[in-house]
Structure formats: C-alpha cells, structure tokens
C-alpha cells in the first residue's frame, strides 16, 4: 500500500529533507477505480427498488398531472386538446373552487395548532412514564387510533355525531349545553370532521413529540430545578426551545396532512352516497373537490390543475414555515 505523506515537499527546520508523495502504481489505481465503480453500483442497486416505486407512483404521475392540466381532457374522450392556462382560468372564476380553498384553509388553521398543542400536552403527560410498563400501555392507547382504518372509525364517528342518538350530543346535554346538528349543520360539520381527524392523528404526533422530548437531557431539567425554576418556566425556557425542531417537523407534517385531508371528510359527509362535502359544500375541501371533479364529473384536466394549485399552496406554506423556523428553531 502506498503511503501518502504530503503532496508538497516538506522541509524540517535545519534539515534539508524532502518527502515526496509516493505515486500509487498503475495496477493499484485500476484496482481502486474498480472498487469505486463497484461501490457505486451496489449503492445504486440498493436504492433502485425504492427509487423505482417513487418514480412510477410519484414523479411520473406528478409530471403527467402538470401536463394534462394544460389540456382539455376527460377520461372518456379519446383526444386531448391543448388549452394552455384555460383550466386555471376556469377555476379562478369558479366560486366552489374558492369555497374549497377557504374550507381547506379553515380546516388547516384550526387543525395545526390543535394537533400540535394537544399532542405536545399529551406527550408531556406521558413523558414521565417513558420507562414504566404502565407508560407503555398509555402510549399504545394513544397511538392505537392512528393504526385503525380511517374509513371504519369514521363510520363510528358518524354515529357519535348523530344529532338524535349520538354520544356527542349526550355529552353536551350532560354539560347542560344545547344539542348541535353536527354533520347535518353547515356550521358544525367541518368541526365534527376535525374532531375525528384530531383523534385519529394525535397518536402519531404524540410519538414524534415523545421522541423529541426524550432527547432533552435529564440533567438540564435537574439543573433548572436546582436553579429554582418552576415547572412552567422550565417548560417555556428549557424544554420548548430544545424541542423546537420536533415542533417544526410536526407543524410541517400536519400542514401537509390536513391540506390533503380526504378520507375522513369523504366518509363522514356521505361520500358513499355521492354527497361528500356537504351539507351545502360546507365540508368541501380542496382534496374533496379534486376527487369529485375527477371521478364524479370526470373532468380530469380540471382536477389536475386543482391538484397543481394545491401542491403549490402546500409548497409555499412549507417554505414560509421553513423561513420562520430558520429564525426561531434551535438546532443543536
């Protein structure tokens, strides 16, 4: 093996000594090259399956989506005409499209703080029991809803929100509050869906927060305690800044998930009977409208244009969040 000392001649003080870099012999260079090529091939080979799945199910459809958004095309018509930005123009003149954006924004604006704060609160409660068996049971209980099928649990939530014999109104009556129309009311249908979504997704975010909290060194909490800081001050000044990367991640993830929310809305607002998004479009979010445009009304190119807009909105939001986070998130 050739020993490389330095590429430049090195002189020691008082000694006229030159150490020349030893050149690797030719066959060694060839062998090194072959090794490098082999290593690269193995590397690419390893990411190939995942890469192929991504390419076929994500990149190609995404590119195709962008293309067809510039055409006039329904799935039943044999030809597609290039229409330029006409699909986008149609959308911008379509009140329902704007309504869906407002609904999505409303849904997201409520869901992000709600999921973030609630999951952090639950994670803080579960944190102390991290090591114990009972803690494990609680963690499992919190995570369980997340692994249940959305469609099945949403049907249960439809019962819960039934205005006449549902559990939700029963609880309200116990609190001496007036009964609500829930899924039959234009005001309460979306909040009802939010409650279902919150219940379903909370576990995931709790686990993410628990992972973040477990990385806050115990000594820091102890030092802060000895420093005389009370619980809230420890949370606000020590824990909160240290888990800010986790919080940022949760916010991004829940933004993406809520803007794309579909299954709960579709199932709870009567998707099975073709009436998803009701009553009176009060739960028609972007994702629901895209689905209906494409698969109920078969306007594929219009739906593609909408998807593109949705993608653009989420991208912009994520970039804004990233910009904010660079200023407030503390990375160690």
């Amino acid at each position: 093996m050739a020993l490389k000392i330095s590429n430049r001649p090195t002189t020691l003080p008082g000694v006229d000594l030159k150490l020349e870099a030893t050149k690797p012999r030719r066959f060694e260079r060839q062998r090194d090259m072959a090794l490098m090529v082999k290593e690269k091939l193995v590397g690419y080979g390893l990411i190939l399956p995942a890469g192929a799945v991504f390419l076929v199910f994500f990149y190609i459809p995404a590119a195709y989506l962008l293309v067809i958004s510039f055409f006039h095309w329904g799935i039943l018509s044999p030809t597609a005409n290039f229409v330029g930005l006409k699909n986008f123009r149609i959308l911008f003149h379509q009140p329902l499209f704007w309504r869906s954006l407002v609904n999505s924004a409303y849904y997201t604006l409520v869901m992000i703080p709600a999921t973030t704060l609630l999951s952090l609160a639950v994670a803080m409660l579960l944190r102390d029991g991290m090591q114990s068996k009972r803690g494990g049971i609680w963690r499992a209980a919190v995570f369980l809803p997340h692994v249940t099928p959305v469609v099945a649990t949403s049907i249960i939530w439809v019962w819960v929100f039934n205005p006449h014999f549902g559990l939700a109104n029963y609880v309200l009556s116990l609190l001496h509050l007036p009964a609500l129309g829930w899924l039959e009311s234009t005001t309460w249908a979306l909040p009802a869906v939010m409650i279902d979504s919150l219940w379903h997704s909370l576990g995931l975010y709790v686990i993410i927060f628990l992972a973040g909290l477990s990385r806050v060194p115990r000594e820091l909490i102890e030092v802060a305690t000895l420093d005389g800081a009370k619980k809230y001050r420890i949370f606000r000044r020590v824990i909160w800044p240290l888990i800010s990367p986790t919080t940022f991640f949760v916010v991004i993830l829940s933004t993406v998930n809520t803007w794309q929310a579909f299954s709960q809305i579709y199932t709870m607002t009567g998707g099975a009977h073709g009436g998803a998004g009701g009553p009176a479009f009060s739960t028609t979010t972007d994702a629901v409208l895209i689905f209906q445009t494409a698969f109920t009304y078969l306007h594929f190119s219009l739906a593609a244009a909408m998807s593109f807009i949705l993608f653009f909105i989420i991208l912009t939001l994520t970039m804004v969040q990233k910009w904010i986070s660079d200023r407030i998130v503390f990375y160690r």
Binding site: E219, V223, L226, R237, V238, L242
Partner: peptide
C-alpha cells in the same frame, strides 16, 4: 432541591445549549 441552596456541577456540564 431548589430550596437547599446547593450549586451543582454535572459531569456533562448540563449547560442550556440554546
């Protein structure tokens, strides 16, 4: 601990990194 008036130095310093 906070009312015992002790000052403690930890092995890994335990400085607030932020």
């Amino acid at each position: 601990g906070d009312r015992r008036n002790v000052g403690m130095v930890f092995q890994n310093y335990a400085l607030y990194p932020h």
